[in-house]
Design a protein around this nucleic acid. Structure first.
Lengths: 359, 359
DNA sequence: CTGTTAGCGCATTCAC
DNA sequence: GTGAATGCGCTAACAG
């Protein structure tokens, strides 16, 4: 049998009869015996609101400090029937947009005393399902997902788990619970209209090949839709590399674009990262940006704000998505705690085209 | 009393007598009754190795699927005395170097069936301590930390928790356990020597103001050391903004540098992000890079590989740090499981100067 | 203000 | 191949 995290009583001989558990760990019982009280009193002393005499509490807390006792959350989960966990899944942790969202969430969850179980789906629905299954074993009090596309298996798991769900970064047609997001299609259309207003007529789109990045796919749909509405050609689409699309795809994507449509006068990229890759490749080739080609990205990544020339992009308040998602989760958890019914809500997060130097 | 994650039996009427728990959750017991077996048999059926008749297992698994039963890890933790958790703390999740390390770790931990509790210390030792305290309540089987600098409180907690520890991204003088890292001081010195070899003599350093980023501080120490050894001036140091240092600091830092030392012919930046910020600002000011000023960064971020001109930098295999750290953790967990003593090890990860276009 | 009792849902151990 | 008893460490509920 393996022993987890045995706590040693640092620099302290336990008096006889004050035994630790079989595993040698310091438990509440140990502390209780040392303080000459019951475990229940220790339990009360450890939460600030419960009623314990000042003197007893001080004595107990002193012992707790001395032996370095850290209460075990596992039995607490058992006893209170609350795991203290919230699960959050993002397509990638290595993407500052999602990292910002995670940051926003943790701000709220932290202060609510909930720990986050963070998962990186790597833009894969099957990995998302696996993570959901793994996380559900920890009985999270809520689950925050990215996007509205999930495998059938994931949906089944989530339904029968009967756990509050928040979907983010999108506006799913058939939400599983609360929604905090925006229309990626509208965002894609908005940037096309912006370029059109700036006089561009031969606009191209660069995105990833795979369908995993459904938000990217929707931005592409928005591109198509807007070009149609504006009666400009909408076939200048290059899909390069695989998601997550990144700077790496810049050179090959630009090459492919220029070969098929040498007259392209503006390029909408599925993210700032690919946009920056394209921009840098233009600089290498001596292509004037925005003189000959305008470039627009998505996400307002830091690189977009600081590169030269600065990238025109679409900004979303990623942290706000996280905060709002966490608040929705808390509301759902709270309602559940009171045995109340609560209708899931849809919270739209604004996006805006940020006009800068590349378009 | 709040109820966590009640599982509903989707589309299935429970026959009378086959009750769920008081909370209404589907438990192993529920499944057992439905299958007409004991909970123990369900438990066995759920792990592939245990001995259960083919027929019984199939019947049980079918029911498990139908009702969407997901076993609860909490009592398992209790019974097996293994939490199945590993804690990992990084200074920032919004930093692709650390995100890569996390990715490397999860690769190994995933396949070992361990779940990661991921924490973002935000470069703050006190937040690190808080996170350690919170995570220890979950009885992680190992803890992976970034760097060797920890608060006294954190050290005490870790010591008395008696949990295997791995420190990464550094070579602490007094390690708490295993170490997987490299000398940031040597890395800082190496890039100075590189610039010196390329003929630069008036080399400056740009880093963050705060002391939280101890790795950055060590790179600065390496800068000092190398300039002294090479007998070139080592006072051209600008500390700007606060950690995490980023592109944002580029303009102000460059401004400060040029004002005090207009003759600077090379700038070592604490990270590629600040280096890119400086590079972009040079481009805006029309300063020739590397003609007039050479620029070097650290970390080989994606932006360094793709920007124009490409950034000279120091590369470390961040994912390998993560993988090696996870492997060290597994080794420690394993030894502990066998009640063996195991001497913590120090694994050095190589770094290399990557010569590119800016220096 | 403090103690006692009971139980959370699973795995271990031992019978059968 | 299967079942029954037991206990993990904590807290809710109630008794004192």
């Amino acid at each position: 049998m393996r022993i987890v995290a045995r706590q040693k009583v640092a620099g302290l001989k336990l008096e006889p009869g004050v035994s630790t558990t079989s595993a040698g760990a310091v438990t509440m019982q140990t502390v209780a015996r040392m303080a000459g009280v019951s475990a229940m009193t220790v339990s009360r002393a450890l939460k600030s609101d419960a009623s314990v005499s000042e003197e007893t509490r001080d004595r107990i807390l002193e012992i707790v400090r001395r032996v370095g006792y850290v209460p075990d959350a596992t039995p607490r989960v058992f006893a209170t029937r609350r795991s203290g966990f919230v699960a959050a899944l993002v397509p990638s942790l290595n993407n500052s947009n999602f990292a910002d969202t995670v940051h926003g969430m943790s701000e709220i969850f932290d202060s609510a005393g909930l720990q986050m179980l963070l998962g990186d789906t790597e833009y894969s629905l099957s990995r998302e399902e696996d993570l959901i299954r793994a996380f559900l074993q920890r009985r999270p009090e809520a689950i925050v997902l990215t996007g509205g596309a999930h495998s059938e298996g994931a949906r089944k798991l989530l339904m029968s788990a009967d756990v509050p769900i928040v979907e983010t970064w999108d506006l799913p047609k058939e939400p599983l619970g609360d929604v905090v997001g925006f229309s990626n299609e509208e965002a894609g259309a908005a940037i096309v209209r912006y370029l059109y207003e700036r006089g561009r007529r031969r606009i191209g789109f660069i995105g990833g090949k795979t369908s995993f990045d459904t938000r990217g796919t929707q931005r592409r749909a928005g591109f198509k839709k807007a070009t149609r509405a504006l009666r400009i050609p909408g076939d200048r689409v290059v899909l390069a590399g695989k998601s997550p699309v990144s700077m790496t795809q810049g050179p090959e994507a630009l090459e492919a674009m220029l070969e098929r449509w040498p007259d392209v006068d503006a390029i909408v990229c599925v993210s700032d990262l690919s946009a920056f890759g394209v921009l840098a490749e233009c600089q290498r080739r001596g292509i004037d940006v925005p003189g000959r080609i305008a470039i627009a990205g998505f996400g307002d990544f830091e690189v977009a704000r600081w590169c030269c020339p600065r990238l025109t992009t679409v900004r979303v308040d990623c942290e706000e998505i996280g905060r709002a998602a966490a608040e929705a989760a808390l509301a759902a958890i709270d309602a559940r705690g009171r045995n109340q019914v609560r209708r899931p809500e849809v919270k739209r997060i604004a996006f805006e085209v940020v006009a800068r130097e590349t378009a």
